[in-house]
Structures are given as structure tokens and as C-alpha cells.
Design a protein around this nucleic acid. Structure first.
Lengths: 194, 194, 194, 194
DNA sequence: AATGAATGAGCCTTCATTCAT
DNA sequence: TATGAATGAAGGCTCATTCAT
């Protein structure tokens, strides 16, 4: 596959990101992609044989563009600062209007067998748990946090974010509600918030 | 609609519950229901004009069959006991093999405009928040719990359960992981768990 | 078939007349009739096995209720008066809002083989031709009319009315346009109209 | 849409013309067209989304192929000759065995709101009235015709033709009957026919 | 690489008609 | 007579997928 091909593929991925953002995963047809990309039916099939394959590449593309909070650790920010930063990134993600893929992610993984090898989402999930666990441990060391079981706390935060994410898609969620949960988390870790 | 008709409708609802449990909401076609019920195409349409209408009745049927924890309050069980009971019911719900509608619920509400008037799921959600909030307040009074913001704590628990629910459907969740989160919640409320 | 049955049948015919008036012949389903009559599906089939049979009875019912201009001839009205009366009845028929069956008639006969034995419409058509022919002959005798071929003139009038009828249903027709044609006919018969 | 596509579309129109000619408008289903064209269901939908759209194109195709009598005026034919020519064309149209769309036209326009903007049939109707009106005026000038109200006469002829057309479809019409009406018209215009 | 016409499977929906009660 | 639940055929429509060019 030549350079030109790779560019075309990336173009399709970019356009598809918008489409999946608007319609979710299950509603998207090959025709939707074809129309949005303004290419031919046959043309799309040269690159992708199904919306599934395409969505996988969309996810990979997103993962490559994602932030890496682990790298922030051990710079001069405090553990609490970084945790807050992480939560605010998640907030942005949940309330993002354009290219919000959360619904598509859920629908995609609902359709997959739970333990596929190359599970991008799981990798991100586990990374987050690990990163937050480390953060909490650091916070405990520096005296910022109080916590008996850092790993359980880390899982707790990540599951909670998942819950906020899905609730935002089903029942709706206000930014204020999200903020109140951030506060509650920090308080649970023994931080005094003014 | 006569008695017989009501029975038939309930029969369809019961069969459909299984189908939605197996396939989720979006994958189910009228044909799936027809096949599972062993009735004719036209026959089904006498009762339901769409899978959407049918699923709404399935949800109503489930809601009618659900537990009411509020009624348990102020009997001789402690607040912690009742909270634990609630969480264990949620655990059962998440790990139930048969007629597990969680995926269907998510997919259904992804498709609805958020905040439709007669939102069964929202009603249950709000009820749970209210009930847990009350429980925590009672627990604080009796000295079982320590908590600065009972309402935030209640929301926290309910969002967390949502997160566990969706995670179970996407990445998979072990009963042990669920239990660890129960433990973490109780500890956060200041309970010493042996 | 008892008295009660006959009444019920007439009731169905009356209701059906309205339905055919609103929807034409081809659009009407047995369900439309059932709904309008507020009887059961099976109930209707006891009386009529198809919309075709029902429409035939509707036509018979209409025919029985129709005017008989022949009886007016040789009373003290002049030929021109009676001709005018006939044309004004046809006008009423064309512009009638309620129970206007003209469309239904056309659609029905489009579907029939052209020369069915018991053709009600043909009988009416032939009657009209005969009646008008007689009128013109009388008019010629009394010196009211001038006409070389009374039969051709009679056919001409009846075909013209058919044309006005169908045009009213396809392209639309104004009462004024109808009146101008009445005038034209009378002038063709040598009558001076003020 | 490429050249080939246009050819295919025309092919469909041509086949459909025959089908509408045989069955009328209301009886024709997409399946009828599919079968007659020997293409796939989906294939037809690439070109037409409904029998209505298809019939509109059939009408356009017919209109494009129609005669223009106006162009014959002021050549060396007399007004009476041209009028006769017009009537004989209408006769051919009415008694044509193959691709006779008259029934389909009626059924189509019964279903439309009267006075739709792009009403092909109305255009033809109005054209005919205008053309015949002009003819009669010319005939009066040349002394061929006698007529007090040329416009009313023109309408009369066109409505009459409509009546003959619809009668042919409902009760049946013999060529002789048509001829007798031609004769009557000409006589009404003061022409001596041998 | 790219096009877009073509296919046919599959689901949706309506309706005439039957039949047990 | 009367009911209305039930059936299944028929037609509408969409979509993933293929293939000749």
C-alpha cells in the first residue's frame, strides 16, 4: 500500500469518525460512509470490508491521538493536580459535541465477545486504573491523600467515570453533576476542598 | 381487548424478554419475535407495531416485578444491611444469565431523546438515589456511617453501579471485582469491614 | 334473510356510500368498511365477501334513489325546461361534496370487463340518451329546438357530461365552466338565451 | 448519471409504458415493473423509488413524443381539415390497443391533488383548447365555420373528447359512435358534410 | 485503484380471508 | 348471527456485497 493509499485510508477514518460520532456504531451503514466520504461504493470496499473493520481503525486512530497522563507523573505537578486534570479531560470527553464516540464505543463492545485479544478500550481502561493507582500511592506518600486500598480506589474512580459516561448517554448528565462527583472523589481521598 | 388477548400479550412480553435478553435491543427484529413466539407475522402486529413499543412493555413488565427497597427501611434491619442488600440485588442483576436486559436498556436509551417524560429507567435511577440518600442519613443518625454529603454519596453509588453495569457488558466484569467495589463503598462510609 | 338482516345490510350500504365517496373505489379495503361501520371483520363477511360486491349494492341503492326525468316529460314543462333541469341535476352531482361517487364509478368500471350484463351505469347512460333524444324530438315539434340529428345530439350531450364529470375529477372544473357548456348546448339547439 | 444509465432509464420507461397500458396506474406494483424489465428489485430502486415517479416519467416521455397540431395551422390545410386531423388522432389514441395509457392517466390524476403545478395533462388540455379555438376563429374568417362563441366551442370539443375517452374505458365505445360525434361537431360548426 | 450499476437476501407492513367460539 | 384473533401471501424498501469496466 503506497503513500497515497495510506492518506486515503486516513481520510476515510477521519470522515468516519464524524459519522460514528453522529450516529453511533450500530446505525452506521457502508452507504453512510460512502456518502460522507464522497467516494464510490467499490472504492470504500478496497479499504474496508465492513463498518466493524473501519470502526476498529477509528478507535486506533483515537487511541494514538489520546493523552498520556503517566508521562505527567513526577513532574512538578502534585498528585491531586494530575488526578484533577485527568477527570477534567474525561469531562471534556463526555460533554464534547463533535466527534463524541462514546455511544459508538458502547455499542461496538456490546456486540463483541467480552475478551477479544486486541481490545483497545480495555487497554485504555487498565492504563487508567494503573495510572490512577500510582497517582494515589504517590499522593499517600506526599501526604496529599488518605486511602487504605489504592487499587480499589483507582478502580472505583474508573468505574465511576464509566457510569457517568453511560448515564450521560442514556438519562442525560449535567456538567454540574459531574463536578459534584469530582468533589466527592477528592473528599473521599481526604482532600480538603475549599 | 379481552382476557385472552391480555394473556397473549403477556405471553409475547415474556418471550420477548428472553429475546431482548439474548440479542439486546437494536438487533431484535419483528421476525425474531415472531419466530420465538411461534405466531404469524400478522399476528404479532395485532399486538405490537414495532420492537420499540414491545420493548417499552417489556420494561414496564420488569418494573412492575422489581423490588422496593424503600419499604425495608425502618424495619429492624440496619442501614448498612439494607444498603448491602441493595448492592447484592444489583450484583444479581448484573451477573444474571437469563433475561438480562441491561444491554437492551442501554441500547434503547441510546436511541431515545434523553429526558422523555415517561422514562422508566430514570424513575428507577432517581428512586435509587433517593432511597440510598435516605439510608445514608439514617446510618449517620444511628452512627453507622460517616459522610459529609449524603446526596453526593448516594449519586456516587448509583453512578458507580451504572459503571459496573456497562463495564460488565463491554469489557467484562468478575463477581470479585464487584465485591471489592462493595467493600470500597462501605469503607468510604466509615464502616469497618472484617 | 330476515328483516333485521335487511336493515343491517342497508346500514352497511349507507356507511359504505360515504366511504366510497371519500376514497373512491380502488382505495377502499374491507377494513375501511369494518371500521366505518363499527362492526366486526367476520360480521361484514356475513353480508359481503368483497368490496366489489358491496360497491355493486351501493350502486343499486343509488340507482333506486335516482331521479326519473322521463316521468316529467309531457307535463306542463317545456322540453328546454326539462333539459335544463337534467343538466342542473348533473351539475349538482358533479359538484356535490358529500357522497360523491363519481370517482368510485370510474375506478370500478375501469376494472370491469366493458360489457358486463348487469351494468347499472350503462343502463343509466342509455336511459339518459333515450330521454334526451325524446326531449329534443319534442322540442323540435314544439318549435323550441332546431336539430338535424336528435339522436346524435342526445349522445353528444351525454358524452359531454361524461367529459365534464371526469375532467372535474382529474384537472378540476369550475361551476362557471359547467354553466358555459350548458349555454353552449342550448345555443347549439337553436335556443336564444338572454 | 452516465449515458448507459440514461439508456437503462429509458428502457425502464418503455417497458413500464406497456405495463401501465395493460394494468392502468393503480394496479401496477414495483414488482410488476421488476418482472417486466427482468431486473432485480434493488436495481429498479436505483432509478425509481415509486410507481408514481415512474409514471410521471412515462407521461413526460409520452408528451415529448406527442404531435403538435399548432404547427400545422397556416399551412395550406383548411381549418376543417386540421380539426378533422386532430379528431382522428384522438380516435387513434382512444382505440389504440397497445400502450393505451388513458386509463392510467385517469387513475393517476384521480389520486393527485387537482391543479398541481407541473400537470402535464392539464398542459395538453389547455393547449388543445387554445389550438382548437384558434382553428375555429380561422375557420370563421375563411367562411368555413359558423360559430358565435369560438372559445366555448373549443372547450366543448375538448370536454366531449374527454367524455368519449372515459366512456370508452367504462362502458365501451365503438369507432362508429366516435365518427358520428365527429360528424355532429362539424355540423354544429355549420359545415355541410356529404 | 476506482467506479457505480446490479444483485438478492431480509425485514417491514398491510390486507383479504378464515375459523373457533 | 356475530366476534375478533390468527394466518400467510404480497408488496414495499434497504443494505451488504460483487463485478465488469
Amino acid at each position: 500500500m503506497g503513500d497515497k493509499s495510506i492518506q486515503k485510508k486516513q481520510y476515510i477514518i477521519d470522515v468516519a469518525t464524524t459519522v460514528f460520532g453522529e450516529l453511533g456504531y450500530k446505525n452506521v451503514t457502508m452507504k453512510d460512509i460512502v456518502d460522507a466520504c464522497d467516494i464510490s461504493r467499490g472504492g470504500l470496499y478496497l479499504y474496508y470490508e465492513s463498518t466493524t473493520q473501519l470502526f476498529i481503525d477509528v478507535m486506533k486512530s483515537q487511541a494514538a491521538a489520546g493523552n498520556d497522563f503517566t508521562s505527567l507523573i513526577s513532574e512538578d505537578a502534585t498528585a491531586a493536580d494530575i488526578l484533577l486534570l485527568f477527570l477534567q479531560e474525561e469531562k471534556k470527553d463526555i460533554f464534547r459535541k463533535k466527534n463524541n464516540l462514546n455511544r459508538a464505543y458502547f455499542e461496538f463492545y456490546f456486540d463483541q465477545k467480552p475478551s477479544k485479544a486486541d481490545n483497545i478500550y480495555k487497554k485504555k481502561f487498565d492504563n487508567n486504573v494503573k495510572m490512577i493507582g500510582k497517582l494515589i500511592e504517590i499522593g499517600i506518600e506526599t501526604g496529599e491523600f488518605t486511602c487504605e486500598d489504592p487499587l480499589a480506589a483507582a478502580y472505583n474512580i474508573v468505574y465511576l467515570v464509566e457510569g457517568l459516561k453511560s448515564t450521560a448517554l442514556t438519562l442525560g448528565l449535567s456538567p454540574d453533576s459531574f463536578d459534584r462527583q469530582i468533589l466527592y472523589i477528592l473528599q473521599s481521598l481526604g482532600i480538603e476542598v475549599s
